[in-house]
């Protein structure tokens, strides 16, 4: 709190990064705190906005047995936090030809038979920074419900935290990616307007307009760009 005549000091907290204590300003995210402490991150950091899943981090808090898992760019530091950044998750992605596989359990289980090792412990769900129902997705995969897997894992960032915590050693995010691809290729309803538009393009509906644009000078293009229709804010 700011008080008149009192010098304002930034509140500092102690965090332990890879076993070493550092004093960092409270309120920073784990990622910024690491950089404040002098780490120069070239791996384990990406969009800084909670979308790319590169900065998977595990941590514990004093007096709490739980091992928390979260994204370093989205999680504020707390005093006594003991943390480790996990820049990558070793997990093999199996090769497949999407045009040759069926959208069902047979494909998922033959590429990733370790799905059958799930013991329903739910550790994956507890580890997910996106709060997805990860175990439900594993179970859906095990019974071949590709559409349900795609639905449950739509917001997966492939951070790999579930995969590192899984006692059954399932490479979750590869299974999710395969399931979403199978869903998109075979199960999702086909968009009629897209089909129509592609048809129009193939028939050359926009060709004249494209040709005209290609023939314009840089100046003319600039003017055209400035005069473009913009959706009202």
């Amino acid at each position: 709190m700011n008080q008149v005549g009192v010098e304002t000091k930034t509140e500092m907290v102690t965090v332990y990064i890879m076993g070493q204590a550092y004093k960092v300003p409270a309120g920073l995210t784990i990622l910024k705190a690491m950089e404040y402490a002098g780490f120069r991150l070239t791996r384990g950091v990406g969009c800084r906005g909670g979308f790319c899943g590169a900065c998977a981090t595990v941590y514990r808090l004093p007096g709490d047995y739980r091992l928390y898992a979260d994204l370093a760019c989205q999680t504020p530091v707390r005093d006594g936090m003991y943390l480790a950044l996990l820049p990558s998750t070793p997990a093999e992605r199996k090769p497949y030809d999407l045009r040759k596989v069926k959208p069902g359990g047979e494909t998922l289980l033959s590429l990733y038979p370790e799905l059958a090792r799930c013991v329903a412990c739910n550790t994956c769900t507890k580890a997910c920074p996106q709060k997805l129902e990860v175990m439900d997705a594993v179970q859906a995969a095990l019974r071949g419900d590709v559409a349900q897997v795609a639905e449950l894992t739509f917001d997966c960032l492939s951070c790999g935290l579930c995969t590192l915590r899984c006692p059954a050693e399932i490479p979750h995010y590869h299974v999710w990616q395969l399931s979403r691809r199978l869903y998109g290729a075979y199960l999702a309803p086909k968009a009629e307007h897209l089909r129509r538009r592609l048809q129009e393009m193939r028939e050359g509906k926009f060709q004249a307009e494209l040709d005209r644009l290609m023939s314009l000078s840089k100046e003319e293009l600039r003017e055209l760009y400035k005069a473009r229709e913009i959706e009202p804010e």
Binding site: C118, V119, A120, C121, N122, D136, Q139, L142, R143, P167
Partner: peptide
């Protein structure tokens, strides 16, 4: 609702608690 795999084979080892978790869930 939200059932999970039963595990298909029962854990016969005395200390294998983890494999009871799925059925009990």
């Amino acid at each position: 609702p939200r059932w999970n795999c039963c595990g298909t084979v029962y854990a016969l080892a005395q200390d294998d608690l983890m494999r009871h978790v799925g059925p009990v869930r």
